[in-house]
Amino acid sequence: MSTEQRPYRKVAYYPGCALEGTGHAYNRSTKEVGKALGLKLDEVKNWNCCGAMEVKNIDPKIQTYLSSRVMSIAANEMGHDVVMAPCNGCYHNLKKADYDLKHDDESRQVVDRISSKAGHSTYEAGQVETIHALDWIKEGIGEKELRSRVKNSLKGLKVANYYGCMYTRPRHIFPEKDQGPGSESTSQPHFMDDLLAVAGAENVDFPLKTACCGGAHTLSDSDTSTLLVLNILRAAEAAGADVIATECPTCHSGLEMHQVRAEKKFGYKLEVKILYFTQLLGMALGLSPKTVGVHENVSDSMPMLKQKGIA
């Protein structure tokens, strides 16, 4: 397949709230990687919050509406059929909304009603395909082409790839996963591993790829979250990782926050660094650490990156 014929060359981009706040470095590095690879992002106009982890606990159908509005704008006002969301929460919610609208009459009625009262066209299930930043790069550019663009190999860097909960669970909202060779797996996800391996990194055998970081209760049950994050950080160190690669702003800031909290409150100091996979990929493509926002992370990776000859 020639590069131009690949899918996802130009997609609607839904950054979501976190990428305008704590996940700013992820937003920046995603855009920069897109630019470097010639993949176009067309930001969803006047988007709203997808409902994150919270709104569904008040009422799941409000969440379905919120997510559907984003997809409605992408499809009906901008004419897109693919929405790319780099945040696991957004990605998950858009997928779930699409699933619910396909399978549940009541969800359809509620969304119809709120959309018409709010004065915009209703989103119909299937109008757009929601993809993650991982799909976007993996499919949009392909591993072969990506390999040829690596200018600054991540050779010698040991990476633990952390995918978290929302990227794979619950399984039924991701019908395209677990479809055999080439597709993503919900039990052993590997898209991020694949991309970083192409960039030269050495992926360690990391058993907690889809463990939970307690992100939903980062502030409301901090001790549990710290404990869960500690498990993840320790497992990564035990596997010999220099860095944990993340693909979600909530996971990423959860790991960073509770790494600090574990140190301050419980006296556990763990050295493993935390970087977005787009930051690692960007540096492999020859972008500077600054361009991909390494200085915006809480976790200070610069000395490690310098020592490895990457920065």
Binding site: C17, A18, E20, G21, T22, N48, C49, G51, A52, E54, V55, N57, I58, I62, L66
Partner: peptide, 16 residues
């Protein structure tokens, strides 16, 4: 969840 949802309903977006 309530603080969050109230803000989303009011403004459409959240600010952490």
């Amino acid at each position: 969840d309530e603080v969050f949802t109230e803000q989303v309903i009011q403004t459409g977006k959240i600010e952490e």
